[in-house]
């Protein structure tokens, strides 16, 4: 199987280049994921650099651009990929080395979304009650693994990564707005005002297309916009 992988080590390379690799079909077992192939390649070429950890799609480390589409290497089946498999770092982010990108901008926008429950009532001695129906509102929101596949697939985020929060952070905004226990609705909406932070979303929906967890940031952003409109009336 053939691979073409983006390489750049600022310690020794003047500029990035694409390197071809080939794995013997004998090494490939059915059901193998792209990460398995990358680990085999790394065993041969230790300088090939990428992040990885859980190998089952829950830690969000190995987001990368695979044949032009963002995804997680550990849950992308080799058998479903056209050859040569072209692997590049997540787009739009500064490259640290090879497939490793600097996600600080992405994390900063996540922090800007105030992704934590705010409830100023006295702390009860037991749990705060929440009906199963209220809790269901969080399904499809809390499962985000911060892999950055969505935000780095979003043209609005490419243009304004410092001003537009991006789909991942806005999904978290809605996750807390939608939580019956959270009391900071006003503060959260005010935090999203202006032409950029929320409203740079032009419903291009790349985020929905690539999310490896099947989440829908565009819908979440739509809900926030509805709340904004309601508030302004």
């Amino acid at each position: 199987m053939k691979f073409s992988i983006y390489r750049f080590d600022p310690d020794k390379d003047a500029k990035p280049y694409m390197q071809d690799y080939e794995l013997d079909d004998g090494l490939l077992k059915s059901g193998m994921m792209l990460l398995d192939a990358l680990l085999l390649l790394k065993a041969r070429d230790e300088s090939l650099s990428f992040r990885r950890s859980c190998q089952e799609g829950v830690c969000g480390s190995d987001g990368m651009n695979i044949n032009g589409r963002n995804g997680l290497a550990c849950i992308t089946r080799l058998s479903e990929l056209n050859q040569p498999v072209v692997i590049r770092p997540l787009p739009g982010m500064p490259v640290i080395r090879d497939l490793v990108v600097d996600l600080e901008q992405f994390y900063r926008q996540y922090r800007n979304a105030k992704p934590f429950l705010i409830n100023e009532d006295p702390v009860p001695e037991v749990e705060r009650l929440q009906s199963p129906q209220q809790r269901e509102q969080l399904d499809g929101l809390y499962e985000c693994i911060l892999c950055a596949c969505c935000s780095t697939a979003c043209p609005s985020f490419w243009w304004n990564p410092d001003k537009f929060l991006g789909p991942a952070a806005l999904l978290q905004s809605w996750r807390f707005l939608a939580d019956s226990r959270d009391q900071a609705t006003e503060e959260r909406l005010t935090n999203l005002e202006g032409p950029f932070r929320l409203f740079r979303c032009h419903t291009i929906m790349n985020c929905v297309e690539v999310c490896p967890k099947g989440l829908n940031p565009t819908r979440a952003i739509g809900r926030i916009k509805e709340l904004m409109v309601k508030r302004s009336l």
Binding site: V126, R128, R135, L138, Y142, F176
Partner: peptide
């Protein structure tokens, strides 16, 4: 320890009573 987590925002599944 679990009640604290709930107060921190952990989205526990819920029973019909609204409890964890």
């Amino acid at each position: 320890a679990v009640y604290e987590l709930e107060h921190f925002g952990v989205p526990f599944s819920r029973l019909d009573t609204g409890k964890i």
